[in-house]
Simulated assay, not measured.
Amino acid sequence: MSNSVTSERFYFSVDTLSLIRKYAGSTFVIKYGGSAMKSKSLQLNVIYDIAFLYSLGIKIILVHGGGYLIDSWLVRLNIKPKFERGLRVTDANTMQVVEMVLSGYINKNLISLLNQYDIPALGLSGKDAKLVTAFPLSQNFNDFTGKVDNINDKMLSTLLDNSFLPVIASVASDVKGDTYNINADTLASAIASNIKADKLILLTDTPGVLYNIHDSSSLIKHINLNEIYNLKSTGVITDGMIPKIDCCIHALNNNVPAVHVIDGRVRYALLYELLTNNRLGSMLVL
């Protein structure tokens, strides 16, 4: 049997069956966003992989962003997107757009796609039943970019134990009821850490962790925490990849045994990464 990646079909490898047995009953937190979300065909491919993993008896929590669509709507409304150190700066007007796009459009669209495979998906934001409470990342009173304060892990456990697949938009509120935009990688990492997930999987628009960001052949398929720190200190990991890697580090230091960073634009990316030993992305471990 072949292990090669193809745009047409997923080829089971000799190790697939043992990996399926290994993962049955496990809990995976998957973060979905970026360029892997830009087209209908890409969305359908990702949802198919998630539905397939769910059918194998894997418990899945799907956390999503949608920055590309937020930016598109901001431009339409003559609001200039702003970023600092790879994170969005969210003023009051931007926050309204963020919530509209994430909770009102993308979340329900993903639920609709999962419904096509008869997956009992449940669309949520952090605001629902205080699933996620937040506090401001900045001291600027008009910046509604938030950090995770608390996760209602009992609610998530109840949903997973009853075979639901939670689909969570990265929006939350603080104790006063103010709404905050939380980076989806950050939220996925916090959720994975709180529920002690077996894996955190970040679907990105890069092959994974690279020695050279301009050369996809420099992909690092297996990397430990000490090596990650070294890549950060030497400037190999830079710019927008820094907050993503920081989320990986947080998860590894807080109960999550493995984190995967993979290119969500590749057909069957999730299946090749999880159900073959060759894999196609980066696996980060302690």
Rank of each mutant, 00 (worst) to 15 (best):
S2Y: 02
S4G: 04
V5M: 00
S7E: 15
S7K: 12
E8T: 15
V14K: 04
L17N: 03
Y23L: 14
T27I: 11
F28N: 12
F28W: 11
F28E: 13
V29D: 10
V29A: 07
K31Q: 06
Y32E: 03
S35N: 12
A36W: 10
Q43F: 14
L44M: 11
N45S: 13
D49T: 10
I58C: 08
I60L: 01
I60E: 02
I61S: 12
L62G: 04
L62Q: 09
G66C: 12
Y68D: 14
L69H: 10
L69K: 09
S72H: 13
R76K: 13
N78D: 01
K80L: 01
K80A: 00
K80N: 01
K82W: 03
F83W: 03
V89W: 10
N93M: 04
M95E: 00
Q96P: 00
V98W: 05
V98A: 06
E99R: 04
E99D: 08
M100T: 05
G104I: 00
S112E: 02
L114M: 13
L114D: 07
N115S: 13
D118S: 13
I119V: 05
I119P: 02
A121V: 03
G123L: 01
S125D: 09
G126R: 00
K130V: 06
V132R: 11
T133Y: 13
L137A: 03
L137I: 03
L137Y: 04
L137Q: 09
N140T: 01
F141E: 12
F141W: 09
D143V: 04
D143F: 06
D143E: 12
G146Y: 02
K147Y: 02
D149K: 14
I151D: 08
I151H: 05
N152W: 03
D153E: 03
K154D: 00
M155W: 00
L156V: 02
L160R: 00
S163D: 14
S163I: 10
F164P: 05
P166I: 14
P166N: 08
P166T: 11
P166H: 10
V171I: 12
D174L: 08
G177V: 13
D178R: 07
T179L: 04
A184F: 04
A184G: 08
A184W: 07
A184C: 07
T186M: 01
T186R: 01
A188R: 07
S189E: 02
A190D: 08
A190F: 08
A192H: 10
S193G: 14
N194M: 04
I195M: 00
K196R: 08
K196L: 06
A197D: 03
A197C: 05
D198Q: 14
K199Q: 14
L202M: 13
L202D: 09
D205Q: 01
G208N: 09
Y211W: 07
N212Q: 06
I213R: 10
I213A: 05
H214T: 06
S216Q: 05
L219F: 02
L231Q: 00
V236C: 01
G240I: 05
P243F: 12
P243A: 06
K244D: 02
D246Q: 03
C247L: 03
H250F: 10
N253Q: 15
N253F: 11
P257V: 12
A258F: 15
I262P: 13
I262Q: 11
D263I: 02
G264P: 04
V266G: 12
L274W: 08
N277H: 12
L280K: 06
L280Y: 04
S282L: 11
M283E: 15
M283Q: 15
L284A: 15
L284N: 13
V285F: 11
L286Q: 00
